[in-house]
Design a protein around this nucleic acid. Structure first.
Length: 917
RNA sequence: GUCGCUGUGGCGAAAUGGCAGACGCAUUGGACUUAAAAUCCAAGGACCCUUAACAGGUCGUGUGGGUUCGACUCCCACCAGCGACACCA
């Protein structure tokens, strides 16, 4: 009667673990254990929809890893929490006019219930949410630290703002000037930025949250408007964020993604004088004395180029429509055209600028600048293919050697001069380039470039840069695609900034700001009556009561900052809080931080490959510079789980059919169960619109949590994208049933071991199976190759199912191997096999290699690489013996008869190959 | 457009230079059963030849080429699917 019944044993063991605090992690790693292991999942956003089958994929992988290493004697830190600020909760609040905290807490409770149902071995006592006031107290504290830090480029290190050297001319202007100077240097600073304002969402968005001119969330249009915003100076850390990637155990793909996002390039800044040609000699002489200025003067346009070697080919210039010199250099005759163009560009979203046929547009300013090497005047154009936010917002255009400039020059009939010659090109290609019929953007040999002729691109670059800097006209420069991080949001449901704006006698901000004193943290969110956005880019917190909004401190009146932080803020440092979640004196306990960091294994989806990881690394480095943490990098090893897809079905009209009204025949042809119409099967992301969402809770109800866990791991490699199949779940459930029946008498009335499970010695053949399975599962778990580990356990079970007697020791080994994968079933069997305690800390089985080997092995015999026979020989057979045995093989000797044997390859224990003619 | 990942039976996959398809699903056959379910056992890449049977042969890991005694695996070129980025000078 007693069949394997997960509905009964799973809640039982979950309760056991909870009551006994089986997975509570000590404050510090065990002194006499085998070391610490910090394994982290990317914590979820607790959406109202509950758990998705994608969540348990990574969580099961880390859980198996943790349970395995606990059994191997490591002290394991394995926490879980919630990234709970964010737009959906606020949108729900706006719809229902209930505080977001309410729905957030309900969602968290639901997520926790669902996660516990899957039997993960988290230390739930460490659970936290980014929305906990005691958590964001420290998020605000970190912001104050960023606010209190400037980046010392010479030392390559963030330092307290009090240590910032004040230039004497600033100091001479008094304390207000000093304050303004300091505010400009802080890692957290305010700037009038062109922001992505999304009217539909009522907020500005980070560049990364805008996709093709539309919001990533909700797909609403986004406009660019100037607004005073908080920025974080992540660009100061660009070099370190790039260089320290080397030390990390991440996949090359993710590293490359990060490196490309940072986008470091080395080139030169060059000044082009916007003057008449007859003023050139004076200008140059002036530069030769004064050198290359820190910032460009009013009469020059500074450009950034990665190809200074092509300067002789710079036949025109382009500045961005937002460039500060636009008004100054526009000639009266061009003023109308320029104004119209600039206005059109400002209304264009990024999508309009980049999408479509990408035909380049622009307008002539009427002014010219002097090319510093040819000393000839070249026209200055305005075009939106030049971005204000990269480099200097201006370029020298070299149409012969840059595809964008080439397109533009062709459109407006601008001059094209070839200055680089390809090294290997056909005469036709050479002619096309020389005639301006083709653009050549690669490296080659300099031509038409005066004294630089004949130099390779690499040499010409450095010689040209040197030439320019000697004359004070240019210098070597490094640029990054990475921009400073736009950190403020005009939303309610986020961390308030711990910043106060000083007010003058009239109650107007006077431009001075200060941080909220640390002792006054946290700054909690105010109570709001109304959550509806008002459609202006002014934050909802501005609607708070005066009692919250206005503060008096040291005799001065202040108004609170009303922006809130983006969702990234809380997730930037949660891995640190898990180490000492209740520490009330610091964001993380110093000693515990040093003991547990870095995170040894971090698993999550690839969608966070760039932003979350980059932002976290940035904060971590600032905290490192300020002595809060002891390691340069937070996440030593990173693994991205693959996406789980699902089958969806379309009928002939393309309409989507729900999976439960589809039947498939043995060839995978799908038909509609009601109409009999044949359907097309596609594999796609799970979505409501495709009617192909799998609900993990339903799977647990029908098959059990152990089956769900096992299936998610058995589907394929962790990092691969793979489609969900309910039949596959049934398959692994079947395996768990077989494990149960291997040991448990399913015909008895009460749950008890089978009579065939006996405490007897194992046979050599059984030993071979036992030890090779232990060896394989151990290796596979360490490599995160869970699908193959499960396959090996299946082979083990298939083998012992056929054995008349099942030695108790073998059954115990299997139970322990299975424990990380299917912990509920394993605990139940472990108890039935006679143990009183949980197996969570039972020693992992060990293997003996000498018991894994057979005495005899079968070796394939090949002729010219084709298998023509097999022989069975002793496992330790030598090369000579093996060859001799092969020659004696009946069929082989027939085939070899009369042939000339050119060569014999003998690999002992593997194969024999005769090469004949 | 650029970069990255992937391509192996009806399906999910395994094997990273040495017997392709472990393991699982689905399928088929058998045992058990009055019967069914469940369970247990077994078969299976395609094609060909021969057969009562054992056996034997050819082809086969997206396509085309190459390296090698030997290639799913390494190299070159291409095709397809998925994903990311996308005027970054």
């Amino acid at each position: 009667m007693p069949r394997y019944n997960p509905a009964e044993i799973e809640p039982k063991w979950q309760q056991y673990w909870e009551v006994n605090k089986t997975f509570r992690c000590p404050d510090m790693p065990e002194a006499n254990g085998k070391g610490k292991l910090y394994v982290l999942d990317m914590f979820p956003y607790p959406s109202g929809a509950g758990l998705h089958v994608g969540h348990p994929e990574g969580y099961t992988a880390t859980d198996i890893f943790c349970r395995y290493w606990r059994m191997q004697g490591k002290t394991v830190l394995h926490p879980m929490g919630y990234d709970a600020f964010g737009l959906p909760a606020e949108e729900y609040a706006i719809r229902t006019n209930t505080p977001p905290r309410q729905s957030t807490e309900a969602n968290i409770a639901n997520f926790t219930r669902q996660l516990k149902m899957l039997g993960f071995s988290y230390d739930w006592d460490r659970c936290l949410a980014t929305t906990d006031v005691e958590y964001f107290r420290w998020t605000q504290w970190i912001f104050l630290t960023l606010f209190d830090t400037w980046y010392d480029a010479e030392l390559g290190k963030g330092r307290p703002i009090s240590e910032l050297p004040i230039p004497s001319e600033i100091a001479a202007q008094g304390t207000d000037a000093i304050d303004r100077y300091r505010d400009r240097q802080r890692l957290a600073y305010q700037d009038d930025a062109l922001v992505n304002w999304c009217p539909a969402l009522g907020t500005v968005l980070a560049n990364e949250e805008v996709i093709d001119g539309r919001s990533e969330r909700g797909d609403h249009p986004v406009q660019r408007i100037p607004l005073r915003q908080w920025m974080l100076r992540i660009t100061a850390y660009a070099d370190r964020l790039l260089a320290d990637l080397d030390s990390l155990d991440w996949s090359p793909g993710i590293k490359k993604l990060q490196a490309d996002w940072i986008g470091r390039s080395v080139g030169a800044e060059v000044d082009f004088a916007v003057i008449e040609q007859n003023q050139w000699t004076d200008w140059l002489a002036n530069r030769a004395n004064g050198g290359f200025p820190e910032t460009a003067n009013q009469d020059t346009i500074r450009v950034y180029t990665t190809r200074p070697d092509t300067l002789f080919g710079a036949t025109y210039m382009v500045i961005a429509p937002e460039h500060p010199l636009v008004a100054k250099i526009t000639s009266p005759s061009q003023a109308d055209q320029v104004a119209a163009y600039v206005q059109t560009a400002s209304f264009k979203s990024d999508r309009d600028r980049t999408e479509g046929d990408k035909k380049k547009t622009g307008v002539f300013t009427g002014s010219h600048a002097i090319n510093p090497v040819t000393q000839k005047p070249i026209p200055i154009w305005i075009a939106d293919y030049v971005l204000a936010s990269y480099g200097t917002g201006a370029i020298m255009a070299v149409p012969a050697h840059d595809t964008r400039d080439y397109e533009f020059a062709k459109t407006y009939q601008l001059e094209i001069i070839q200055v680089v010659q390809p090294v290997d090109a056909t005469p036709e290609e050479l002619k096309a380039i020389a005639d301006g019929e083709t653009c050549f953007a690669d490296e080659g040999i300099a031509i038409n470039s005066g004294e630089f002729n004949g130099l390779s691109t690499q040499v010409a670059k450095s010689k040209m840069t040197h030439w320019l800097s000697e004359r004070g006209v240019g210098k070597q420069a490094v640029n990054y695609k990475l921009r400073d991080w736009l950190f403020s949001r005009q939303r309610f449901w986020g961390e308030p900034f711990p910043i106060l704006h000083e007010l003058d006698a009239d109650g107007k901000p006077n431009g001075k700001i200060r941080g909220v004193p640390v002792k006054d943290l946290p700054v909690d969110l105010p109570h709001l009556e109304d959550f509806k956005p008002h459609g202006r880019p002014e934050p909802p917190l501005a609607k708070a009561d005066d009692s919250w909004l206005y503060v008096e401190l040291d005799g001065k009146k202040y108004r609170r900052e009303t922006n809130t932080m983006p969702q990234w803020a809380g997730s930037c440092w949660y891995y640190l809080r898990f180490i000492s979640p209740n520490c009330s004196t610091a964001m993380v306990d110093r000693e515990q931080e040093a003991a547990w960091m870095p995170v040894d294994l971090y698993i999550g989806g690839a969608e966070h490959a760039v932003l979350h990881l980059l932002y976290s690394r940035f904060w971590h480095k600032v905290l490192y510079d300020r002595g809060v943490v002891s390691h340069k990098e937070p996440f030593q090893r990173l693994v991205n789980q693959g996406m789980i897809l699902s089958y969806a079905y379309k009928d002939k009209r393309g309409a989507l059919i729900s999976g439960d009204s589809v039947s498939e025949d043995e060839n995978g042809n799908a038909t509609h169960t009601e109409t009999g119409e044949s359907l097309e099967r596609i594999v796609a992301k799970m979505s409501k619109s495709l009617k192909n969402v799998i609900d993990p809770e339903g799977v647990v109800r029908e098959y059990g949590a152990d089956a769900l866990r096992l299936y998610e791991m058995f589907m394929g490699p962790l990092e691969a994208t793979k489609p969900w199949s309910m039949q596959g779940v049934n398959g692994v459930r079947n395996f768990l049933d077989r494990v149960w029946r291997l040991m448990i008498d399913s015909r008895s009335e009460e749950t008890r071991l089978l009579d065939t499970v006996k405490d007897v010695a194992t046979t050599p053949e059984q030993d071979k199976m036992i030890h090779s399975t232990i060896a394989a599962v151990t290796r596979d778990v360490e490599l995160l190759s869970f699908n193959t580990a499960i396959a090996r356990m299946m082979e083990f079970v298939n083998f012992f199912t056929k054995e008349e007697t099942r030695p108790l020791s073998a059954m115990k080994s299997l139970t322990l191997l299975l424990a990380p994968f299917a912990p509920h079933l394993a605990e139940e069997l472990w108890a039935l096999l006679g143990s009183k305690d949980s197996l969570a800390y039972a020693p992992w089985p060990t293997f003996d290699e000498s018991k894994m080997k057979s005495t005899e092995i079968e070796v394939p015999l090949q002729v010219n690489g084709k298998v023509r026979g097999k022989i069975t020989v002793a496992a330790d057979c030598t090369q000579a013996e093996l060859e001799l045995a092969a020659r004696k093989h009946e069929r082989l000797s027939e085939l070899l008869d009369g042939k000339e044997i050119v060569k014999v390859i003998v690999i002992p224990g593997r194969m024999v190959n005769f090469v004949v003619r």
